[in-house]
Computed example of a mutant assay.
Amino acid sequence: MKPLTIDPAVFAEGAAPEGTEALARKLIAQASLAPDTWALGPAEVRARRAKGLTPFIVEPKSARAETILVPGPAGEVPVRVIAPEDPTALYLHFHSGGWTLGTCDQDDPRLERLATELGFACLSVDYRLAPEHPYPAGPDDCEAAALWVAREAKQKFGVETLLIGGESAGAHLTAVTLVRLRDRHGLTPFARANLTAGSFDMSLTPSARAFGNQKLVLGTRDIRMFAANFLQNGEDLRDPDVSPLYADLAGLPPAIFTVGVRDPLLDDTLFMAARWVAAGNQAELQVWPGSAHVFTSLPDPNAEPAYAKVMAFLRG
Results as ranks from 00 to 15, higher is better:
residue 179 V to L: 00
residue 307 Y to F: 15
residue 225 M to E: 15
residue 238 R to I: 09
residue 197 A to R: 02
residue 293 H to P: 15
residue 280 G to R: 03
residue 210 A to M: 08
residue 220 T to D: 01
residue 197 A to N: 06
residue 241 D to Q: 11
residue 222 D to T: 10
residue 309 K to Q: 15
residue 286 Q to R: 14
residue 273 A to Q: 01
residue 230 F to L: 08
residue 209 R to W: 06
residue 279 A to R: 09
residue 214 Q to D: 14
residue 293 H to N: 12
residue 300 D to M: 11
residue 215 K to E: 12
residue 194 N to D: 10
residue 229 N to C: 14
residue 214 Q to S: 07
residue 202 M to W: 01
residue 249 L to K: 04
residue 240 P to D: 04
residue 309 K to S: 13
residue 231 L to N: 11
residue 276 W to G: 10
residue 283 A to K: 01
residue 229 N to L: 04
residue 227 A to S: 09
residue 184 R to C: 10
residue 286 Q to F: 12
residue 305 P to R: 15
residue 198 G to T: 15
residue 263 D to S: 01
residue 234 G to D: 14
residue 188 T to H: 06
residue 276 W to E: 13
residue 220 T to G: 03
residue 185 H to C: 08
residue 207 S to G: 08
residue 223 I to R: 06
residue 254 P to S: 08
residue 258 T to R: 04
residue 237 L to Y: 00
residue 293 H to D: 13
residue 276 W to T: 13
residue 234 G to E: 14
residue 269 T to V: 09
residue 250 A to H: 10
residue 248 D to S: 02
residue 287 V to N: 02
residue 218 L to V: 06
residue 258 T to H: 02
residue 304 E to Y: 07
residue 230 F to R: 11
residue 252 L to M: 05
residue 205 T to K: 10
residue 233 N to C: 00
residue 216 L to K: 10
residue 232 Q to A: 07
residue 262 R to P: 00
residue 250 A to R: 08
residue 178 L to P: 03
residue 288 W to C: 07
residue 216 L to M: 09
residue 199 S to F: 02
residue 195 L to E: 12
residue 305 P to I: 15
residue 193 A to Q: 06
residue 248 D to W: 02
residue 178 L to F: 04
residue 222 D to Q: 01
residue 284 E to M: 04
residue 249 L to I: 10
residue 229 N to M: 05
residue 224 R to A: 13
residue 241 D to K: 09
residue 294 V to L: 10
residue 242 V to P: 14
residue 244 P to K: 08
